[in-house]
Design a protein around this nucleic acid. Structure first.
Length: 278
DNA sequence: TTAAATTCCTGTAAGC
DNA sequence: TGCTTACAGGAATTTA
């Protein structure tokens, strides 16, 4: 599943391929993938634009487009669970589940492929997309220097929901999904089912530290390929080899040897160690 | 306002 | 072998 490190890797790989290119065509084959505006307008507004920058916000890839306005016009891509966003030569064989093709002025094609179709494409300025409720009001970036342990504590201490539910909440902190939520709780030694308002400043500080270290490590390893995630070149990341709890329910804890517990939290499978996490 | 439940979607794997 | 069923999960939406 693409979370912050996977999306960061993809955006960094696509950047040199896309910046400076102009969109010359767009073919939306599965219209419900385009959530804003209507697919015909999406195509009409996109064609002719130059891509000035490619950035990431949370789990979203942002393509900043040339337009005569003060605020950026953005092509926004969210990969959902199985989305793939690649730039390929036009003669590359077409895969199954190809839902949209954006043609560039060098002939290359940006292809959106998504087996489960949980992903989405959006076009608009950030304020426009937020106002239209197509983009959530995302919380802080966990790797931003301004995102301190104190700031995380401020976002958690008045909430009764389980810690993990809040780590997954994109309005609390942007970019964390099921893999990195479970892994950061394990590394911090904190049970994911603890009500957030029961956590001490010290515990929140450990979570903050574990999360930032883990995300940096995962970016350095080009993300986790646990399902269908592949980078811009179709290659797997390496971080999945370093995961300590995700996907290991029932197997021995790598720290103490006791079988790892599996519960459901915030609708997600959650794995943790009852001895190492308190 | 917050929290929990439901929905979308299809490939994969388990069970019979 | 072939069928049915459960499961995986991000986030929008609905319900409490």
């Amino acid at each position: 599943m693409p979370e912050l490190p996977e999306v960061e890797t993809l955006a960094a790989d696509l950047r040199p391929q896309l910046v400076g290119r102009t969109v010359t065509g767009c073919d939306v084959r599965f219209p419900t993938i385009v959530r804003h505006p209507a697919p015909e307008r999406f195509t009409a507004e996109l064609v002719g634009r130059r891509i000035d920058a490619v950035t990431r916000r949370g789990k979203y890839i942002l393509h900043h487009l040339d337009c005569g306005r003060s605020e950026d016009l953005l092509l926004v891509v969210h990969l959902g669970m199985t989305g793939q966003w690649r730039c390929v030569k036009p003669d590359a064989p077409e895969p199954d589940h190809l839902h949209a093709v954006v043609v560039l002025d060098d002939g290359c094609q940006l292809r959106y492929r998504d087996v489960r179709r949980f992903g989405r494409l959006l076009l608009g300025s950030e304020p426009e997309l937020v106002a239209a409720r197509k983009l959530p009001r995302l919380g802080p970036e966990p790797l931003d220097p301004d995102f301190t342990a104190a700031r995380l504590y401020g976002r958690l201490h008045a909430r009764r929901a389980p810690l993990k539910a809040l780590l997954l909440d994109q309005m609390v902190v942007a970019g964390v999904g099921n893999i990195y939520a479970d892994e950061s709780c394990f590394r911090a030694g904190v049970r994911p089912d603890r009500p957030a308002n029961s956590l001490s400043r010290r515990a929140v500080s450990r979570i903050h530290s574990a999360l930032s270290t883990l995300l940096r490590e995962a970016i350095a390893n080009r993300g986790s390929s646990v399902d269908s995630y592949r980078d811009a070149w179709g290659e797997m990341g390496r971080e999945q080899e370093l995961l300590q709890v995700y996907g290991r329910g029932g197997e021995p804890c790598l720290r103490c040897g006791r079988p790892l517990s599996v519960v459901r939290l915030a609708g997600r499978t959650t794995v943790f160690c009852r001895r190492c996490q308190r």
